[in-house]
Nucleic acid binder design. Structure first.
Lengths: 221, 221, 221, 221
DNA sequence: GATGAATGAGTGTTCATTCAT
DNA sequence: TATGAATGAACACTCATTCAT
C-alpha cells in the first residue's frame, strides 16, 4: 500500500472524511516538525511523535510510509513556508537601498522567529542534503528571491548607489549566512564568547549590524 | 572504575606501555571524530567506531566511559586544534587592513579545510550546546582571537583606516558566520541554488567576497 | 510509550485479541517468577526468561517496561497469591486451639509447597526491600491474617486456654519465622547438620514441632 | 598458577613479605565480605571490590583465583567466625534453664549484630548451597553447638525441668529460625506489618519473646 | 608481587516497522 | 480508517578474566 500523501495534499475528495484526514495529516506534520527540529532525524523517535499526535503510530505509516518519508514531508513543508514568506515580502517599489534594507531585516527576523526551520536545514546539511535531493518540487521555487535581489541590484546600480558586478546569488548567500548563523550557532557562540544572539537587545543590534555590513558591501564606495 | 583519560592526557609515565596506550586512545579519538562529524551524536554507532579502530569497543569504554563522554572528548580536541591554529596565525605585525585580510582568509581556509570541525559544531548546536557546556577547560581559550582582532581594530582606527566603535566580538561573529555557513550549508545551498561552495573556483571567489565584505564594513567610508 | 500492564490487569476489552494478550502477559509472569525465584534479580537473565516464554524479549519490555518492573510485577503477583490463600483458609469456627493448629499447619504447608515465593521474599530482603516498597497496592492486604489471629487469640483467652497479652503480629512473626526458615535455609542446614527439611518425613515432623512449639507458647501454663 | 590462599592461611614463612601478603589477603576478604553480603554473588562486582581494597584486581585473582573462589573464602571465614563465637559462649555450668536462656539470647544477639553473616547465608541458600557444599572443612565444625545443646537438654531432663525426647538438632533449628528470620526478613516484615525488628525496643522485646517461646516448648508442662 | 591495558562474550534496552482485528 | 500487539535487528554498555611489563 502506498502512502496517501499526494492525493490529500491536492485536496481531492472534499468530503468530511477527507477533511478530517487532512487534519490528521497536518497534525502529524506539525508534531513531527517540532521533533525533527529538536532532535534531528536520527534523534527523533517515531513513538514519541506518535504519542504527541492526536492520532497513532499506525497513521504515520499510513499517510507517510516511514520515518524518512515523514522527515522529507516535514522538510518540504518547511521550505514551502519560507518561500511563501519571501514572496509575501516584496519591497521592490521602495528605493533600492531601502528595499535591500527591508529584505535583509525581513530575512534576519524570519530566521530568528523560525528556529525550527533553521534546525531542520542544519540537520539536512548534517545528512549531506540527501533528503532534500529527493524532493522534486523544490528546484524551481528558489528563483523568486534571486530574481527579487537581482532586480533591486539592477535598480541600485542604475541609480548609482550600488556597485556593479554583484551576483544576486552571492548577495543572497551573504545575507543568509549572517542570518542563519545567528540562530544556528547561538549555543556554541554563547558558550565561547558569552553573547546570546537570541537576547532581545543583542538580536536587535545584530539585525542592524547585518544590514549595515551587507549595505556597506553593496554600496558604491 | 573510572575512565583512564586524565592520566594519559597528562602524559604521565613515559614507558613503552603507556605510549602504546596513548596511541590507542588517540586512534579512537581520530576515528570517533570522523564518525561523529559524519553522522552526529545520535547517528554515530559505537560498534562502527570500534570496528574502524585498531582496538575494540571495550577500550572505548575503558578510556572514555561512554558514548557521550567520547563525544565530549572529540569536541574538546576539535576546539583545542582550532585554538592552536588561531594562535599560530598571528598577523599583528602587518598593517591593519592587511592583517585583517590575512586573518579572514585564514579563517575561511580553516573552515573549508576542516569540515569535520564545522560538522561537530553544527551537531553541538543541534544539541543546544549541552555537551560543550560540560567541558570546563573551554572558557578561557577564546579570548585570544578577540584580543587579536581588538588590537588590529585599534591600530586601524588609530591609522584612520577603520571605523571606530566596532566590537571585536561582533567582528569575529561576522567573519565566522560567513566562513562557517560556506561549509555548513553547502549541501542545501547547492540544491537550492545550484552553487557548490566547495568547488575550487567557487571557494576561491567566496574567499575574496568574504574578505571584501568584511573589509568594506570595517573600513572608514 | 508506557508499559501495557495496567489496562490488561484490569481486564478491559474482552475481545479475542486482548484475551490472547493477557495470556502472553501471564505466560511471561509465570516464566519470570521461576527465573527470579531461581537466580534472584541480579542473577536472572532477560534473554533466558524470553527464551522460555512463548513470546519474545521485546514483549517483556512492551508489557512491563524493564527488568526491575517485571521483577516487581512478579513480586506483587506472588504476594497476591499468598494473601488469597490466607483468606481462603479461615478456621475461625473451630475451637481456638484447633483453629490455631490449623492456621499454623496451613502456613507451614504453604511455605513448603511454594518455595518460589519463599525465594522471592529472600531475594527481596537481599535487596533491602527496595522493590516491595514501590508496590503501592500492598499495604492494606496484610491486615487480614493479623485480624484472624487476633480473633482466635481473643477467643482463646476468653475460653481460658490461651495466655493474655500476646500481640497477634508477634504470633504471626513466630509462625512465619519457623515456616519460612524451614524452606529458606534448607540447603545450608542440610550441609551443616545433615538434615533435609524437605524430605517428607522430616517435613512432617517439622510441621508438628512448629505447631507444638507455637501452641506451647500461646497456651496458658 | 594456583591461588596462594592455603599457604598464607597456614601462616608459613613468617617473613615480612608474607605478613604483608596476609594483610593484603585479609583486607580483600573484609571488603569482599561486605560486598557479597550487600549485593549477593551475582550482584557484587569484582571491579568494585578491587576499588575498595588497598590493593588491586590482579591480587584478587592472584590470591583467590576468581570470583567464585573469593566468595567461597568469604563464606568459609564467616562460618569460622560464628563457630568461634559459639565456642566462646559456653554456659554449661549454669542451671539448664538459665544455660538455655543464655544460649538463645546469645544466638539472637549474634544474628542481630552480624547481619552480613545472615545475608551471606541467605545468598548461599539462594544458590542452593552449591558453594558451601564445596568447602570441605565445614562438616565437623557444627557438632559443637549440637553437643552443647544436647548436654543442656540432658541435664534439664534429669533435673525434671525439660521434656524428654527433644532432638538437639531440632532445638537448634528452632532457635536459629527465630533469630535468623528476625534479621533476614526485616525489610519485608517492616513493609508488610510496619514493625522494624532492628529498632532497639522491638529487638529487645523480640529477644525475650524468642527465649520465652523456646523455653515454653522445652519446659515440662 | 604488583600494575595498567586489553578482551570477548554477554546484558539490558530501544528502534522502526508490520500484523491481525 | 484506526488500534493494540508483535517482531527482529541493533544498540549502548558491562562483566569476569587475562596479558605484558
Amino acid at each position: 500500500m502506498i502512502a496517501r500523501g499526494a492525493a490529500l495534499a491536492e485536496g481531492r475528495k472534499d468530503s468530511k472524511r477527507s477533511r478530517e484526514a487532512a487534519e490528521t495529516r497536518d497534525n502529524i506534520l506539525q508534531v513531527a516538525t517540532r521533533e525533527f527540529a529538536d532532535k534531528g532525524l536520527a534523534g527523533a523517535r517515531i513513538d514519541e511523535i506518535a504519542d504527541k499526535t492526536a492520532s497513532s503510530k499506525r497513521m504515520i505509516y499510513y499517510y507517510f510510509g516511514g520515518k524518512d518519508e515523514l522527515y522529507r514531508a516535514v522538510l518540504e513543508r518547511a521550505y514551502e513556508r519560507i518561500r511563501a514568506q519571501e514572496q509575501d515580502a516584496r519591497f521592490e517599489n521602495l528605493p533600492p537601498a531601502e528595499a535591500l534594507r527591508a529584505i535583509i531585516g525581513h530575512n534576519v527576523d524570519y530566521h530568528f522567529e523560525n528556529p525550527d526551520f533553521v534546525r531542520l536545514v542544519m540537520n539536512e546539511n548534517v545528512h549531506y542534503g540527501e533528503h532534500i535531493a529527493q524532493i522534486a518540487s523544490m528546484k524551481q521555487r528558489n528563483s523568486t528571491i534571486i530574481a527579487s535581489l537581482g532586480a533591486i541590484l539592477d535598480k541600485g546600480v542604475e541609480a548609482g548607489v550600488f556597485r556593479a558586478g554583484i551576483d544576486p546569488v552571492d548577495l543572497h548567500a551573504m545575507i543568509s549566512a549572517l542570518s542563519f548563523y545567528s540562530v544556528s550557532n547561538r549555543h556554541t557562540f554563547l558558550h565561547n564568547f558569552g553573547v546570546d544572539f537570541a537576547e532581545p537587545t543583542v538580536r536587535a543590534k545584530r539585525r542592524e549590524l547585518i544590514i549595515g555590513c551587507v549595505l556597506s558591501w553593496v554600496t558604491r564606495a
